[in-house]
Design a protein around this nucleic acid. Structure first.
Lengths: 185, 185
DNA sequence: CGGCGATATGTACGCTTGTACGTATGACGC
DNA sequence: GCGTCATACGTACAAGCGTACATATCGCCG
């Protein structure tokens, strides 16, 4: 009785490329860019190694697409929250929700963002991604605030998120609200 | 006539361990943690590969010491600038100088900091480093501001630095001053 | 329904990595 | 002076990497 070798039955998997990009994001969040390899992504998506080289020209290409997807997702939430606000007061509250719920809600997005920053420091293509993302955030804020305020507020958001993430005791929503209102007062 | 093989004459190099840690920081800044290897550090410090395994138990140990050194250096400057200020007005100006000159002055320190953040996300030992650093910064700010203000201001500084670093057009000292004073007003 | 081109798969190769370890050497205490 | 031991050095090795490529498979169009 030979061992029942589990031959891989998988075939005809449309959208596999997208699933691979998604799997790559998961691996980056869990192991970091440093621990993100063709083999690790393939394992996460349950596809053979060869599938990676078929769908992507290089590992850098996978990373670029994954980070682009991440930035786009975060920017979209940012825009939705802010476009739902009807006045500066609601906009301020939207920012608080954004930080405490969306950005600090799960460690995953946070880790991905910092990983992107590091990667962007050395890859011009990724720097374009971060810059486009920053521009979208600022534009969303400018629906409610003047350009200078928008830029400064965007920086404050960044700082609040990062600081809370690194801290042993993250700032509570009330503390975040206090900081935002103090700045906008 | 045999080729004059350049035998390595180096011997008896007290303080080599420290030089290696310093060299590691240079490599991290230039190639990132991902590109930081025993061989790369050894090359940067002009020592043989074997010297690495003699002085350090593992590569992680080198990274930990290097990042600790970096955090300490930045925190020290932070403390010096703020302890030199005599009143909140001077303290505010010290913060502006800190951000525009010390933190944004050279890309090196900035890259090292973000690399540290990423590494700390996965290494508890490094998280202790970032937390100790943050505590020192806050304590320095508390010489001039109440605890809440200190914490919020610290976050704002973080955001201003990161945002300027990622942006195509970094904020000018005047713009930074505007943001700081607006928050403290 | 037949074949062909896009997609999927397994494997091999050359390279770099972290680390271990045997040997060499010279500074320093006696 | 001399022996000893911390320090320094060169090299070897197994593991894991990105990537290339020959082969297999099957949806789709004629």
């Amino acid at each position: 009785m030979s061992a029942p070798v589990p031959r891989r039955p998988r075939r005809h998997d449309p959208g596999r490329r997208e699933r691979l990009v998604e799997a790559a994001l998961g691996v980056i969040a869990e192991r970091g860019v440093a621990g993100t390899t063709h083999r690790e992504i393939a394992r996460a998506a349950d596809v053979p190694l060869g599938s990676m080289t078929y769908h992507f020209a290089s590992l850098d290409e996978v990373l670029a697409e994954a980070f682009t997807r991440h930035a786009d997702a975060v920017a979209r939430v940012f825009e939705e929250r802010l476009s739902a606000a009807r006045d500066p007061e609601e906009a301020a509250e939207a920012v608080v929700t954004l930080v405490s719920d969306d950005l600090l809600g799960s460690p995953r997005g946070l880790v991905l963002t910092v990983e992107l920053y590091v990667a962007a420091a050395r890859d011009p293509a990724l720097r374009a991604v971060t810059q486009g993302w920053m521009a979208r955030s600022r534009r969303a804020l400018e629906r409610h605030f003047d350009a200078t305020t928008a830029r400064e507020l965007d920086a404050l958001i960044e700082g609040l998120v990062l600081h809370s993430a690194l801290s042993t005791d993250p700032m509570s929503p009330a503390q975040l609200r206090h900081a935002v209102h103090r700045f906008l007062r």
